[in-house]
């Protein structure tokens, strides 16, 4: 009973502090609203399931990133098998709900939407490192999550950024 309530408390704290990680990972891997919700639920389920074995050796955010990325990569491979769907391009559904606050301009939302669409078009591994980089993680933290060396990460990140830049080229002009 006690173990259960402390697990509930831990999970509640994780969700309060790191809920955004789950949403951003889900939005970067799942193309539509329904898929995104489905993946978010799956990640939360896995995070909840893994919370019992969390020993505090790593930071909670590192742990959640690992679980989220592993779940998303597995989900992405499964999705590929189930229905190889091509992202039809920018759609409002593809943007995480609540990303656009009332004060935000439509252009900002469109740019964020374009960024998500471009990220989803990247190969899975590039997507993962770009996501970590955009979230502002250090190379050391990224290495802890991916299991790659910092040298490898540098190479992977450069490659992913180049691909992303290619995809985002001219986005501003299109939106204006």
């Amino acid at each position: 009973m006690c173990a259960h309530s402390s697990r509930d408390r831990l999970f509640g704290e994780w969700m309060a502090a790191h809920r955004g990680i789950i949403a951003r990972v889900a939005s970067s891997f799942a193309p539509g609203e329904a898929d995104r919700c489905d993946l978010e639920q799956e990640i939360m389920l896995q995070v909840w399931g893994s919370s019992a074995s969390f020993g505090g050796q790593s930071k909670a955010s590192t742990w959640i990133y690992r679980v989220a990325l592993n779940t998303a990569l597995m989900w992405s491979r499964g999705l590929g098998r189930r229905r190889r769907r091509i992202d039809p391009g920018a759609s409002v559904d593809a943007v995480p709900a609540g990303t656009a606050g009332p004060a935000e301009s439509a252009a900002k939302v469109d740019l964020l939407e374009a960024l998500y669409v471009a990220i989803r078009a990247l190969p899975d591994t590039d997507r993962a490192v770009i996501l970590l980089s955009l979230d502002g993680l250090s190379y050391r933290e990224m290495a802890e999550i991916t299991g790659l060396t910092e040298n490898h990460l540098g190479v992977a990140l450069n490659r992913a950024r180049t691909k992303l830049a290619e995809r985002l080229k001219g986005v501003r002009n299109e939106l204006e």
Binding site: G12, M15, R36, T99, R161, A165, V171
Partner: peptide, 27 residues
């Protein structure tokens, strides 16, 4: 737009309010 601009846009996004983290339902 350069990388810093995209990072700025990324970090300005609000915490999404997608699926609920209902502990009882998850359990």
């Amino acid at each position: 737009m350069n990388w810093n601009d995209w990072e700025f846009i990324w970090r300005r996004q609000k915490a999404p309010v997608g699926a609920d983290a209902d502990i009882e339902r998850l359990k």
